[in-house]
């Protein structure tokens, strides 16, 4: 086996180890961090990054074995990197919604529940569309 091949193998192995470590750290953060808003950080950043490393390792490995570039993995990683922030935003919205309803099963973080916006307004999830918001068709 030539020197170049073994370097490529080392690269793939290092990427797999890196990806596995990041995914593990993300899930450990999901268990260890004290409140939901903090727990959101682990999976959305560390786990997504770990999966990205695994997908890059897969691209490199199939190039090494077959000598062809595959794009399936790129598709998966692009889709994942696009959707991870959206699902995190939705989960944070659910958390805020249930905090506002006073659900006893939904504890606030160490900083307490977030204060309502000033001026008698409500959080955007709950406000009816009014002037200046995207749902206000008359003002558009």
């Amino acid at each position: 086996m030539s020197g170049g091949t073994s370097f490529a193998e080392m690269l793939v192995a290092a990427l797999i180890v890196l990806g596995g470590s990041f995914a593990l750290v993300g899930s450990w953060g999901l268990v260890r961090l004290p409140s939901l808003m903090e727990r959101l950080h682990g999976p959305t950043k560390a786990s997504t990054l770990g999966l990205g490393a695994i997908l890059v390792a897969s691209i490199a490995w199939f190039h090494l074995v077959r000598g062809t570039w595959t794009t399936h993995e790129l598709l998966v990683s692009v889709f994942l990197f696009m959707t991870a922030p959206i699902s995190a935003n939705m989960i944070a919205k659910v958390h805020l919604h249930r905090l506002r309803q006073g659900e006893p099963s939904e504890p606030a973080g160490p900083a307490g529940a977030p204060a309502p916006p000033p001026g008698g307004a409500d959080w955007a999830t709950h406000e009816a569309p009014h002037e200046g918001t995207p749902g206000d068709f008359e003002g558009d």
Binding site: L30, V94, E103, S105, E106
Partner: peptide
């Protein structure tokens, strides 16, 4: 848990893993 949002987050992370 303890909250429903935690469970959704756990399921989402399970899919990623």
């Amino acid at each position: 848990g303890p909250g429903v949002a935690d469970r959704i987050l756990a399921l989402d992370t399970m899919v990623i893993n």
